Amino acid sequence: MKLDNVIKNKNENSRQYAYRVIKENIMVLNIEPGECISEIELGNLLNISRTPIREALVRLTEEKLIDVFPQKGSFVSKIDLKLVEEALFLRDLCEKKLLTMACEDKIPEPLLKSLEKNLAYQKIIIDFDENLHKFFDLDNEFHSIIFEYYGKSNVWKSIKRLATHFDRLRLIDALQISNATKTFEQHQEIVNIIKYKKIDIIDSFVSEHLSKFKHVISTYLKRYPHYFLK
């Protein structure tokens, strides 16, 4: 088992540390969907006792990232397309509403500045073929900036808690450079929608931006069949 980001933060207790490291590594697919989880192995890798490991796994089970099968053990949840659909539904509603608010607002210069700065970093990664995991982080940050600007940071946090299966699918997609380029172009259009108040295209554009994964799911089902819940 490969784990990244294993340096313990000063303000973390063992339970928080175990939860953060295990979840982050599940979300970036270092611990793959369907992979067996060993409390002993995790304890050795993180150099902590099994109790905080077990507490972290209970929390991750509640978040639908771990499945526990009696007599078999604990496994990383496979990507459930029903949960992907639920996350898409919620993001579709919220992002259409937020972009409408942005278009009805006077030109939100601080928001546009933050989004354009984020886009500049996205472009660097694409142009120089840098780490696409970082592009994925910037993608999430781009959308969170809009939620936070309009005082909806808790809504974004709720979406992220629901979107664990959707986000793992998004990561698979984002790690293809051609798909990252397409996402970047769509983010540019979001900035244009806000800047030029293109309120009439919000519904169709957001639906297209979020549902593009539906068109490639069959490809990933064939390429990574062991990642998905049948």
Score class of each variant (00 low, 15 high):
residue 74 S to Q: 12
residue 74 S to F: 07
residue 74 S to P: 07
residue 75 F to A: 05
residue 76 V to L: 06
residue 76 V to G: 02
residue 76 V to K: 00
residue 76 V to Q: 03
residue 76 V to W: 02
residue 77 S to I: 03
residue 77 S to T: 06
residue 77 S to Y: 01
residue 78 K to R: 14
residue 78 K to V: 04
residue 79 I to K: 01
residue 80 D to M: 10
residue 81 L to F: 04
residue 81 L to R: 02
residue 81 L to D: 03
residue 82 K to D: 12
residue 82 K to R: 10
residue 83 L to T: 06
residue 83 L to G: 03
residue 83 L to Y: 14
residue 85 E to I: 05
residue 85 E to P: 02
residue 86 E to N: 10
residue 86 E to H: 10
residue 86 E to P: 06
residue 87 A to D: 05
residue 87 A to C: 08
residue 88 L to D: 07
residue 88 L to F: 05
residue 88 L to P: 02
residue 88 L to W: 04
residue 89 F to Q: 13
residue 90 L to F: 15
residue 90 L to I: 13
residue 90 L to C: 11
residue 90 L to S: 12
residue 90 L to T: 12
residue 94 C to G: 10
residue 95 E to N: 11
residue 95 E to A: 11
residue 95 E to T: 12
residue 96 K to A: 10
residue 96 K to C: 14
residue 96 K to L: 14
residue 97 K to Y: 10
residue 98 L to W: 11
residue 98 L to M: 12
residue 98 L to N: 09
residue 99 L to Y: 09
residue 100 T to P: 05
residue 100 T to Y: 15
residue 101 M to Q: 15
residue 101 M to H: 14
residue 101 M to V: 15
residue 102 A to K: 01
residue 102 A to E: 05
residue 102 A to Y: 03
residue 102 A to H: 04
residue 103 C to W: 06
residue 104 E to R: 09
residue 104 E to T: 12
residue 105 D to C: 09
residue 105 D to V: 07
residue 107 I to P: 04
residue 107 I to F: 11
residue 108 P to Q: 02
residue 108 P to T: 03
residue 109 E to Q: 04
residue 110 P to L: 00
residue 110 P to H: 01
residue 111 L to N: 00
residue 111 L to C: 01
residue 112 L to S: 02
residue 112 L to R: 05
residue 112 L to Q: 05
residue 113 K to C: 06
residue 113 K to G: 03
residue 115 L to R: 03
residue 115 L to Y: 01
residue 116 E to D: 13
residue 116 E to F: 07
residue 116 E to R: 11
residue 117 K to P: 06
residue 117 K to W: 09
residue 117 K to L: 08
residue 117 K to A: 13
residue 118 N to E: 09
residue 119 L to M: 00
residue 119 L to W: 01
